[in-house]
């Protein structure tokens, strides 16, 4: 069984997969791992080529848009140690097209689809659970700490929704941030974060929301278990309505 190594970056991973699909007669018999530079490491290292990586993604998108979407969601999870599964998945996707997602009895397909689903689910959840706060200069700021690196698609989503607004989203866990202003998105990293001053009416609007949140529940039907299963507690930290609980 042939073994290959790559440099650990997303581009490296995709270009390695592209290279293997091109050169190997049977990619499903091949292993791919991140290079650790240990003494007895075996395997041939494939160089990183960003254009190769990009062209692989676009070819897959043309051939099997659903499978490409799964690949994209999987990459958001930044999962380590699943490179071989991903290689086999992409290889099968080029063989079977979008029908590959039904091949859940194949271990590689199942693992990749499972992780991609989890990342996709968190992205959908954050579209609802993200909370913006108004700053003194009229811009809005949202903080979050998601399990997966979803800031890119999330920013894309809000750029279509809150178009006329000037806003920031800050990922506290990864220290990455995005800014939307005058029709363009800018991504960056923040080393030291200081919370800016809020606008004067911010506390008032938050109090309105907290009051609404309390009264909209029917007291006779109280069900904290259901609430927690729909809205896990790990997200409560940045929810205005769940402060002080």
């Amino acid at each position: 069984m042939n073994q290959y190594l790559y440099d650990g970056t997303a581009d490296g991973l995709l270009s390695a997969i592209a290279w293997i699909l091109e050169e190997e007669p049977d990619p499903e018999k091949v292993m791919l791992r991140e290079r650790m530079d240990t003494l007895f490491e075996e395997g041939f290292t494939i160089g990183t080529d960003a254009t190769l990586a990009e062209s692989l993604f676009f070819r897959l998108k043309q051939f099997a848009p659903d499978a490409a979407h799964t690949l994209y969601s999987f990459m958001l999870a930044e999962k380590e140690g699943m490179e071989t599964s991903l290689l086999h998945y992409v290889s099968l996707a080029f063989k079977h097209g979008d029908q590959v997602k039904g091949y859940l009895t194949h271990p590689a397909v199942r693992d990749i689809v499972y992780i991609a689903k989890k990342a996709g689910r968190e992205l959908h959840r954050m579209k609802g659970l993200l909370r913006f706060e108004k700053l003194r200069d009229g811009a809005y700021l949202a903080k979050m700490a998601p399990d997966y690196n979803i800031i890119h698609p999330l920013a894309d989503y809000f750029s279509r929704r809150l178009r006329a607004q000037h806003w920031f989203i800050y990922d506290v866990k990864r220290r990455t941030a995005v800014r939307w202003n005058n029709g363009s998105l800018q991504f960056g990293t923040i080393e030291q974060f200081t919370t800016p001053a809020f606008s004067e009416d911010e506390k008032k609007v938050q109090a309105l929301w907290q009051a609404f949140f309390k009264t909209i529940a029917i007291p006779e039907r109280k069900n904290p278990r259901l609430q927690k299963s729909n809205m896990p507690m790990k997200y409560w930290k940045y929810l205005v309505e769940k402060q002080g609980e």
Binding site: K127, G128, Q227, M231
Partner: peptide
């Protein structure tokens, strides 16, 4: 899109 879940779930 659901934005929150009230105390009655």
């Amino acid at each position: 899109i659901c934005h929150s879940w009230a105390d009655d779930g």
